[in-house]
Computed example of a mutant assay.
Amino acid sequence: MLQTLKRWIGGAKAAGTDARALQAWARERGHHVKRVPADDGVVVEGVMHGTSWRLEWGSPQRAYLLERELRLRMDLGLPQHVQMMVISRALAEELEQAAYALFTQDMQTRIDSGMPEEMRWLAMFPKLTLAGMKTVRSRFTAVASPAAPAAAWLAPEVIAQLDAAGRTWLADDEPMVLMTLRGRLYLRIESLQPDGAMLDGALALYEAAARSALAASEGAVGQTQWPTTQSTAWQSHLPSSFSPDSTDEHPR
């Protein structure tokens, strides 16, 4: 917990790593690749379900992630009131302990101004039952508001991909967050050096979650299409020491 608090208050430092494996993976699959020299990062763009998605690998945009962050985002035009999250259990417990410590240490200003959605949702939203595979129940935690669309979102296809992640490419203590926010779907993973198997697995999980989120939102309201949100993608609520770059040429 002490390590979490130090990261949360002081921020994380990114280490230089080799982006060639990620670039090769993206080009082999026909995706567009852009380098970010200032951050030694990479931006990959592709299309899924007729909608553009963006993968970014670079400096973390969340204080609970160290060194390097792999993040995926796509605007699905989901209802903005639907807030759903699956988070690795170890990270959920770490964030809950950190939030409790901040409260008990009378750091209300830091909590109000710097606490990200992930930490707030764990405190505010009810936990969902992850049905099915033991691997999934032991490795992940799910919260949502409202609960009904989230129960539909966690369809067998998504549960199967979470199980595959827990058994193959996602280490026991590796932080991961899959969430819907402001009409978009996000995936964040701490990854110092992503390889092909991890990237394939992350994209497969993301695609299953995107397809299921669309089906869940349509079923919840009886409509087949939603207007896309115009809010800024990848907006984060970070401590004041963080300064995310606002341009599309840099990971955000």
Score class of each variant (00 low, 15 high):
S191H: 08
A209Y: 02
E190V: 08
D163T: 14
Q225H: 13
L214A: 02
M198V: 03
T168S: 07
M179S: 15
E190R: 05
G222R: 10
L162D: 03
L178A: 14
R167I: 07
A213Q: 02
A209L: 12
E174A: 14
L162E: 01
L199D: 00
R184H: 04
Y186A: 09
A213S: 15
G166A: 11
L214C: 09
Y206P: 00
A216N: 09
D173G: 10
S191M: 11
A210P: 10
G196T: 14
L170Q: 06
Y206C: 00
L214H: 03
Q193G: 05
Q193L: 14
P194S: 06
A208K: 03
A204I: 06
A171M: 14
A210F: 09
G201N: 05
M176I: 15
A210W: 08
D195N: 00
T224H: 09
D200G: 08
Q223Y: 14
E190S: 07
A209F: 01
A213H: 04
R182W: 10
Q223R: 09
Y186F: 15
Q225R: 06
R184K: 13
L203F: 00
W169S: 00
D195W: 12
E190W: 07
L181G: 02
Q223W: 07
M198P: 03
A171C: 12
A215W: 09
G222M: 06
R184W: 11
L187D: 05
T168K: 07
D195R: 06
G201L: 10
A197T: 10
G222Y: 04
M198K: 05
M176W: 12
G219R: 12
Y186G: 05
V177Y: 08
D173Q: 15
A220Y: 12
E174K: 05
D173I: 12
T180W: 01
A208P: 02
L178P: 06
G201P: 08
A202I: 00
T224F: 11
M198N: 01
L185R: 06
L205H: 08
D200L: 03
Q193M: 14
A204R: 07
P175D: 13
Q223N: 12
V177W: 02
M198Y: 00
L162R: 01
V221L: 14
S212H: 01
S212K: 01
G219E: 04
A220K: 09
A220G: 11
A164Q: 06
R188Y: 13
T168D: 08
R188I: 13
Y186V: 08
L203Y: 01
A220I: 01
Q225A: 15
A165K: 05
L181K: 08
A197G: 10
V177F: 06
Q193V: 12
M179D: 13
V221F: 13
